[in-house]
Amino acid sequence: MRAISIIYRRELGAYLRSPLGWVVAAALLLVDGILFQSQAMAGELLSAEVLEKYFWSTSGVTMFMAVVLSGRLISEDRQNHSMILLNTSPVRDSEIVVGKFLSALTFLAIMLLLSVYMPLLIKVNGKVTGSQIFVGYLGLFLLGGAVIAIGVFASSLTKHQLVAYVIAAAITTSLLLLFQLSTRLDEPLRSGFSQLDLWWIHFQNGFMRGVVNVRDVVYYLAVTYVFLLLAVKTLEAKRWQ
């Protein structure tokens, strides 16, 4: 735990020190605000529908930002040769991966918190509850965490940040298309593929509408765990290569 905390503090500090963190935060808030104005506030809608539309657009922005935040985490260390410091210190590969993952997740959570004023405006002027907003944000947090884990895995595969971003985006997009793919399949593949989908089943039908399903929470935690595990195994394998 101590090593996780040391790596976590360094990486979080790196986000706060570098322009990347602030650019990503500003971009998220700007795009969120524009989408909120143009999508959610367009036309006469019930406040619950406005909130759904807000979470619909913010979930896309969150996934994009999660890829941007996480793609650099390990590849940058490899490119700058700083990975050797971690590799030759008494630190486990799992501690490196978890420390870096938590730093990106924390920064994403801060960015999400900064956007809370938009749903709060809906609450002030409409009839949505605080728990609807909380559930939506819980979904964004879990979705963001899963995509960050994908990014950490992609980042562990290569020392080129750009390649890591492309791999992370490709995996995320593939998981987003599973629901569309499942509509063209027969059972049991149909339900199997649809349940593996990253967004339609687990976010749109649940968190976005203010509903917490245990299976959705478990799904996002499982995706996060699997990709973090893959990242750890990749780091271990690279020592043997």
């Binding site: 360094r10 500090g13 700058n80 700083s82 990975m83 030759t88 210190s89």
Partner: peptide
């Protein structure tokens, strides 16, 4: 073993933002 060893690789493993 890592606790007992200090290593300076060919390219120093630095975090240039610190």
């Amino acid at each position: 073993v890592r606790k007992r060893i200090g290593f300076l690789p060919e390219n120093p493993p630095l975090y240039v933002d610190m």
